[in-house]
């Protein structure tokens, strides 16, 4: 016979209104957002190649950074964009921004205000970094850039001619860049940069993507995709590597600060999973598996 008190608890757990779970999760995450714990982090095998490739850039080299995300995925992708841009500029390299998303220019504006102008006030747009702007067409844009940058962009987003941009001198086509970074939340994005940019031209491609998109892109690592920042965890690992290698820079660890609440949320969800399974296994009337003779 089953223990009635245990069965009662299992029944109550099974009938628990899901809104209690929402409330517990909300309170747990809310408290950790206020307390802002910062856990130590270190780059994984997927993140380290991205960091090392940018760390090896020579001063003056240009890197193509594609901001292929929108406000919907900004909480995950924006910390990556901020950290990678800071790293590129710390190395003395020249980021050349482009976007395949219509909302990309708005994302670039946030990057310009919060990173380029705030952290590097001595740098000048057009001279130290370039924003080519948004082009509709997705994979066709990448294909055209592979053959001739000028075929797609007559100048930068502020109207300067391509020939007047120091960051693009000697970079006539995609293959001339030492690295392409795609920060992507969907299509067109990282996959298009791999298929239509990296694979045919041989230019190394690294990227960052949302947590949901990560499993899809991991299939290309490491032969077609040299490194990847998967979701907020990847961004946090990158920030930790940057703080470790450049301790004097003192950049905020935006993703790292979110990993505290993220960890708390995961612990709460795991707890709910365990409780849910206990309730399921102990509920009265559940068919027991037949014993083998």
């Amino acid at each position: 016979m089953s223990d009635p008190s245990r069965t009662g608890l299992a029944e109550r757990l099974g009938r628990l209104d899901r809104r209690w779970l929402y409330l517990v999760l909300l309170v747990a995450v809310g408290v950790s957002v206020v307390l802002r714990p910062l856990f130590p982090d270190q780059p994984s095998v997927f993140v380290r190649p991205v960091f090392e490739r940018i760390e090896r850039l020579e001063p003056g080299q240009s890197v193509l950074v594609s901001l292929d995300y929108s406000p919907v995925s900004a909480p995950e992708i924006e910390p990556m964009a901020f950290a990678i841009t800071r790293h590129v500029l710390l190395r003395g390299a020249h980021p050349v921004f482009v976007t395949l998303f219509p909302e990309g220019p708005a994302m670039y504006e946030r990057l310009r205000v919060e990173v380029l102008e705030r952290d590097f006030p001595e740098l000048v747009a057009g001279r130290d970094w370039t924003m080519l702007g948004y082009k509709a067409g997705g994979r066709m844009v990448i294909n055209a850039m592979r053959q001739e940058m000028a075929a797609m962009f007559a100048g930068d987003a502020e109207g300067r001619r391509l020939g007047d941009l120091p960051g693009l001198r000697g970079y006539r086509r995609l293959g001339d860049f030492p690295l392409v970074v795609s920060l992507s939340s969907g299509t067109p994005g990282l996959k298009e940069w791999i298929l239509y940019g990296g694979d045919p031209s041989g230019v190394p491609v690294v990227g960052g993507c949302t947590g949901i998109g990560t499993p899809e892109y991991l299939a290309y690592f490491p032969s077609q995709l040299q490194g990847i920042l998967g979701g907020l965890k990847g961004a946090s690992e990158y920030e930790a590597a940057l703080a470790d290698r450049h301790p004097g820079a003192g950049f905020p660890r935006r993703a790292g600060r979110v990993m505290g609440p993220q960890t708390v949320a995961h612990v709460v969800i795991l707890l709910f999973l365990v409780l849910g399974n206990v309730a399921y296994l102990r509920r009265p009337g559940r068919r027991q598996p037949e014993e083998r003779p």
Binding site: L25, A74, P75, T210, G211, G231, K233, A265
Partner: peptide, 12 residues
């Protein structure tokens, strides 16, 4: 990974 993405949005 999907859970991590959704929790990131909640935290934001």
């Amino acid at each position: 990974y999907a859970v991590m993405s959704r929790v990131s949005l909640l935290i934001s």
